[in-house]
């Protein structure tokens, strides 16, 4: 399935005031940007967003998803669990349909340093961390 167009993609975007998630598809690369505080208010929407992203990426033959977390000041463990769920789903996709995840993080954020490196341990061949 080919790129379904900007309007269909934008329907996945999430904004709950304190937290937003956007995505942009560019050929075989997808750019995700998370901003704000991912707390309980963002939980369900984040799950829906990541499920949608996974489907969209597979439908469009995406090879890499770049996730920008630099503007995320807080992420609850429940929201983080959704990220782990996403990584687990990607792991389960057989090659060559599997895409890589490149996470852009903030070096100055302790929680990001610790948790993202730990997240990388779930799938070292899939995830790269940039800071």
């Amino acid at each position: 399935m080919s790129n379904t167009g900007a309007s269909a993609n934008q329907a996945l975007d999430v904004d709950v005031g304190t937290f937003s998630a956007t995505q942009k598809l560019n050929g075989t690369t997808m750019q995700l940007v998370f901003t704000g505080e991912a707390d309980a208010a963002a939980l369900t929407l984040m799950e829906t967003f990541l499920l949608g992203i996974h489907s969209l990426a597979q439908d469009n033959g995406v090879k890499e998803v770049a996730l920008d977390l630099r503007k995320v000041s807080f992420m609850s463990s429940s929201c983080f669990t959704k990220m782990i769920g996403w990584v687990t789903r990607v792991r389960e996709v057989p090659e060559p349909g599997r895409y890589r995840i490149r996470i852009q993080s903030s070096q100055s954020s302790l929680w990001q340093r610790r948790s993202l490196h730990a997240l990388q341990c779930f799938a070292t061949e899939l995830i790269t961390i940039e800071s």
Partner: peptide, 14 residues
């Protein structure tokens, strides 16, 4: 601290 929460949660998922 939030890191403890995150690691505990991630540990269980692991």
């Amino acid at each position: 601290p939030e890191t403890v929460d995150l690691m505990m949660t991630m540990g269980m998922r692991f």
